[in-house]
């Protein structure tokens, strides 16, 4: 069994430590939720794990082949349509982009009527749905998802939860941040929390 190992990662901004020696491990098939107050470094940790932000020190050992990072921002090109963005993502991840599959995936998240519009005109909720379409299209080995439930309406939230349930059922490895501890309890197999720059494992009750 392979696992993502993080050892003593440190990162500071303006010479103030945000992450002060974070160590943890994510095993294959773990669904981990990450909690923490605003500004506690959740996003920074996710960005470091996905290689967007550099760490100051520490070790990250990532044996997972394909990592998909879905950040807080939409992460798509505003001038391109959802379908073009999806096709681009497929190319970047070395997958073939079958037109039917793209349309079908977009229909699954309720974007079938918006697939040709530039992403700039879509609402925050629609862009959030687009992230779920990406997550279901790309064949990732590990998913890092920052605030998956942000900006979604009730309908969107239950859609998102059903995505998480199906990932749990098929034993996917993922790490996501969420403020709602009750929902995390439901969707995650493990809970981590960042406090004062360090990481704590929360016992699941």
């Amino acid at each position: 069994m392979i696992s993502l190992e993080v050892t003593d990662v440190k990162k500071s901004f303006f010479r103030k430590p945000v992450l002060d020696g974070v160590s943890f491990e994510i095993k294959e098939r773990d669904a981990v939720s990450l909690a923490g107050a605003n500004g506690s470094g959740k996003t920074t940790l996710l960005k470091i794990l996905s290689g967007i932000t550099s760490k100051d020190s520490g070790e990250i050992h990532n044996p997972f082949q394909k990592l998909l990072y879905l950040g807080h921002a939409p992460g798509v090109y505003a001038g391109l349509s959802p379908i073009e963005n999806m096709r681009l993502k497929c190319n970047l991840y070395g997958q073939s982009s079958d037109e039917h599959l793209l349309v079908e995936t977009l229909s699954d998240v309720g974007l079938e009527n918006h697939k040709k519009k530039p992403c700039r005109v879509l609402s925050q909720g629609m862009l959030q749905r687009l992230k779920f379409a990406t997550a279901s299209l790309i064949r990732w080995d590990i998913l890092l998802f920052d605030e998956p439930f942000a900006a979604l309406d009730e309908d969107g939230k239950s859609l998102a939860e059903s995505f998480f349930r199906s990932w749990n059922e098929s034993g996917k490895t993922l790490l996501f941040t969420d403020h709602d501890s009750e929902r995390s309890l439901d969707l995650a197999s493990r809970q981590l929390a960042i406090e004062d720059g360090g990481l704590k494992e929360r016992e699941l009750s």
Partner: peptide, 15 residues
């Protein structure tokens, strides 16, 4: 256009 929706981060995190 890379920074508009933070598309650059998505690009950097891809393989």
């Amino acid at each position: 256009y890379e920074s508009e929706f933070d598309a650059f981060s998505a690009l950097l995190s891809s393989p």
